[in-house]
Simulated scan of single mutants.
Amino acid sequence: MMPDAATPLFPLTTVLYPQGILNLQIFEVRYLDLMKKCLRDGTPFGVVSLLDGTEVRRPEEKVQLAKIGTLVKIDQHDFVTPTLMEISTIGTLRFKLQSATQEKNGLWVGEIQTLPADPVIEIPDHLQGAANALAELIESIDDKGISEQQRPFRKPYRLMDCGWVANRWCELLPLDKPTKLQLLALDNPLLRLELIDDTLQAQGLIGPQ
C-alpha cells in the first residue's frame, strides 16, 4: 500500500481508536485554521499520541509522536466565540505514521499509510463475557439518562463485533499508553479482544468463561 498524501496531525496525550469519540476545545490559531479547512473541504485529520511533549505548543520543546494513529472526521462543531471552537470527532481508519514535519505555525503534517478497517468477526463464546459487560455498562448509561453527546460512544452499538467491543474497552480501561498503542497496532481484532478479555478477568470485571 502506498503512503497517503501529507495529512495534518493533532498530537494528543490520549490514544484514539476507530469509531471512538473525541471531543475537543480548539483555541490555538493553527488548529482553528485546520478545523475550518477540514469543515470546508470535508477532509479528515490524524490524531496521534504524544510520546514526548505537550499538547500546547512550547518553544524549543522536544516532541516525539507515536508511529500509529487514527484518522478522524468532524461530526459536530460549534463556534462558542470567534477564538473558541468545540468539536466532536469520530475515529475512522488507523494509520502508520511514516514521517512528520512541523510547519512554521507549529502544525504537524505527516506522511501516513492508512490501514484497512478491522474485518467484522463475530464474538466467539469464550469472549462473550466482555461483550456482556459492555452491554451492561451501556444499559447503566441509558438508565442515567445521559445525553447522546455526553456518552463515551455512539450508536450503533456493535456488541457482536470483536473489533468494536475491543476498541471500546481499550478506551475505557485504565491501560498505560504503551499498552494502548500496542493494542491499536494489532491488525487482528479477535486477538485484541482476547487480550482485553484477559485484562477484564485480571481486574475482576468479568469471570472466566
Rank of each mutant, 00 (worst) to 15 (best):
K96L: 13
L51Y: 05
Q203E: 13
V120R: 13
D52K: 15
L191S: 10
I123L: 01
L186E: 13
I112S: 04
C170V: 10
Q209C: 06
F95C: 12
L134D: 07
V63S: 01
G129Q: 09
L181M: 12
E148C: 00
I112D: 01
D4Y: 08
K73P: 00
A133C: 12
A6H: 00
L159H: 08
D142Y: 08
Q64M: 07
Q150K: 08
T54E: 15
T199V: 11
Q209M: 00
P208L: 01
Y17I: 11
P44D: 04
L172T: 07
A133Y: 04
I112Q: 05
V15M: 09
L9W: 06
T101I: 12
T81A: 07
G163I: 10
F153D: 08
Q64W: 03
L172V: 05
G207I: 03
P3V: 11
P124L: 05
I90R: 11
N132L: 10
L34N: 02
E111L: 09
A135K: 13
T43W: 13
L39G: 14
T81E: 05
L12V: 15
V165M: 01
P59S: 04
E148V: 03
L200R: 03
R58N: 04
L195G: 03
K177L: 14
A185V: 02
T179A: 14
Q19N: 08
D143V: 09
V56R: 03
N23M: 12
N23Y: 03
L172H: 07
E61W: 03
K144T: 01
E55R: 03
Q149F: 13
D78P: 00
Q25R: 15
L65K: 01
L200S: 09
L51Q: 11
I74S: 06
P174T: 13
E148P: 01
D4T: 06
P59C: 05
A166M: 04
Q64D: 13
T199G: 00
T179K: 15
L93V: 06
M35T: 12
E194C: 08
I26P: 02
L93Y: 09
V63N: 05
D198W: 08
R40G: 08
T14F: 01
Q201S: 04
L195R: 10
T114M: 12
F95Y: 12
G46N: 06
Q64S: 12
K96A: 08
P59Y: 05
T199I: 15
P124D: 09
V56M: 02
L159S: 12
E171F: 12
L24R: 08
Q128Y: 01
T13S: 05
T101M: 11
E171S: 15
P174L: 12
G145P: 07
A166P: 05
L93D: 09
E86P: 00
G163H: 11
P11G: 07
D4M: 09
L183R: 10
L65P: 07
A130P: 05
H77L: 02
T70N: 06
T114V: 14
L183A: 09
Q182F: 06
I141K: 09
Y157P: 02
D198P: 03
P156G: 01
E122M: 02
Y31N: 02
P44I: 02
G207M: 04
D187F: 03
G207P: 00
I206R: 00
Q113L: 12
